[in-house]
Design a protein around this nucleic acid. Structure first.
Lengths: 351, 351
DNA sequence: CTGAAAGCGCTTACAG
DNA sequence: CTGAAAGCGCTTACAG
């Protein structure tokens, strides 16, 4: 890259010291109005752009935040990142994007790279691997904000969806429709989110006086393929469930496909509910009942929280752990309905 | 952020000059084996991380590339970015992510910000706004690679899908099925991509001896809502089309919904084809016939091309314009089939 | 093989 | 209000 014009060169043109130019361009009050104007004019003419690397070297603030994500093509993560970016660019912060690919080694490498870039803070979105980076960053006093973190740890700030509550709402909804056999397809790598959704599922069953059946809980891994497989497994049960709560919409995609293959109709034969509220959910056939996460807002909140951490003095702020809890919204669509009465179900009077 | 250990401090501990430490850590050959080992040991113990900002200040290379995208939550863009990131991290480059939000001013602001960060190069993915940044970057000699650029310009390197060819393949496919009334729902902001897909559509019609009917071409804007609206419009035509080629899968989503609402069945009543091959396409009901773009690969190619531009000496490389064309793959699924014969269609013998 | 020096492009006390 | 100086954390000719 060609060296673009520097402070020094502007100083030469203006016939002043580069300190003066720096002050003028940073709108220091210590500069005469005319001088400031003249310098601004020259800078504009030459298309001067301050070198942020040089600046952060002396200010010890890079105005950059690092984001580590499992997979930027994941729709949930993409929406969160959009929110993060929104606030960041508003505040003149840059985003350095790194992938962990769900691999702990790569995640650690990404974090180290962010440190070399001297990011002011780090946001980790839905990491599915362990939090080895947490002590690393803590030691370097780089503030961290986790979004839907799967591996809770103390002294770390976070934005999280109320999983328990939302899962409970889904199950109560299914219960109200009359379902008694409700299955849960979890995510074996879902960590805390999965544990909480499962707990909410279980609690709601209990509230409704439905006995918890371990056989109705199978685990996927947040892919359509795993959803297909889990669904098949549930269908082979002696008494298959009449409703399925899926860990997320992606898993539900797989469940849909299996049901189609088996010639079962949603919601006529089986009800399905998802989680996340990804954009395609309402376009599925039938449209998917799900819990909408305020993904964009979660990203915004995470970035705002980080900004706040960066603005407060480090000493007194560090022991406080901020946990922002956002609430999902149950959106009932066409994939959930009352189960068919037993009598009608027995089309072949074999009993 | 706390100042982490510097070269100077390591030098103090090792009792050598910081130049020596720098050489040792950069694996210079000018260093004795023992010295190098000792220094590496100290650096490892203290968790030394070089400050990249300082380094790039002197080397004039930041080892960072800027990416400007319309919307990181867009599934196409997400996949491309994943490819970009893959190669970048492999080569120890960092990614600075910026949003244009489809707004020319914001796009320009993003590019300026990237320049302040002294990125070595810029990748622009599917920008839908004008290319005001192109001369800006060119002047600063920052190499640019565009992915599916909508606004062609000379002296800019690019990775592009063969739109014409792919669109033609879709239409020939529909024609082979027996369709004579084939509509195109375009993207009014789709720039070059839209123009090329439209041209491919038109050419294929001609090849098959089907007369081009301007009424069968309506424009959307790459959103489900616009797809719905465009589809409704087509249905009100005196002779509605029997097959629809949509600008992309997102538009097709809207078309699906309108057809459902009208009680029309895909592909029984109308065939639908999309473009992109987004992950949800195969899970729609019916699964969507579409053109798969090698999105991930396109990202990889873009980053590789940029890397190449960065490694060649600037002078002789600049006049060459590299255009990488990738090919889409028509994936025929259940949303396209032969049109119902006229005779059967007339269920009510009104004629 | 190693060190002292200069410098990358900035900011910011310290004098005046 | 302005300038000279120091320094942020590095790299790299230039001597030795």
């Amino acid at each position: 890259m060609r060296k673009s014009i520097s402070l020094k060169e502007i100083a030469q043109i203006a016939g002043v010291s580069h300190s003066t130019v720096s002050r003028a361009l940073n709108n220091s009050l210590l500069i005469s109005r005319e001088m400031a104007e003249q310098i601004h004019k020259i800078a504009a003419e030459r298309g001067y752009r301050p070198n942020r690397n040089a600046r952060s070297l002396v200010t010890q603030r890079s105005m950059a935040v690092g984001c580590v994500v499992t997979n930027i093509a994941d729709p949930f993560i993409g929406e969160v990142m959009r929110g993060v970016e929104e606030i960041a660019s508003q505040e003149d912060y840059s985003i350095i994007l790194t992938h962990s690919g769900g691999n702990p080694d790569r995640e650690m490498k990404a974090v180290r790279s962010l440190c070399e870039r001297t990011v002011d803070g780090v946001i980790v979105v839905a990491s599915r691997v362990g939090g080895a980076y947490v002590p690393y960053l803590l030691e370097r006093q780089v503030p961290i904000v986790l979004v839907n973190n799967q591996h809770p740890s103390d002294f770390v700030h976070s934005v999280t969806i109320a999983n328990y509550e939302a899962a409970r709402a889904v199950i109560l909804h299914l219960g109200e429709l009359g379902h008694k056999h409700i299955a849960y397809i979890g995510d074996q790598f879902g960590g805390q989110s999965n544990a909480e959704r499962h707990a909410g599922y279980r609690a709601a069953l209990k509230e409704m006086g439905i006995r918890y059946a371990p056989k109705l809980v199978v685990s996927g891994e947040s892919t359509p393929a795993s959803g297909e497989h889990a669904m098949s497994k549930l269908l082979t049960l002696p008494t298959p469930p009449t409703a399925i709560f899926c860990y997320d919409d992606i898993t539900a995609l797989g469940a849909y496909r299996t049901l189609q293959r088996f010639g079962l109709r949603i919601p006529h034969d089986i009800s399905i509910a998802g989680f996340d509220g990804l954009f395609f959910a309402e376009f599925l056939q039938p449209s998917l009942t799900t819990v909408e996460q305020p993904m964009h807002e979660m990203g915004e909140l995470a970035m705002k929280l980080l900004l706040e951490l960066l603005s407060t003095s480090r000493k007194d702020a560090s022991p406080i752990k901020t946990q922002i809890i956002v609430h999902g919204k149950l959106v009932v669509r066409d994939s959930t309905a009352s189960p068919r009465p037993k009598s009608l179900k027995a089309e072949h009077p074999s009993s």
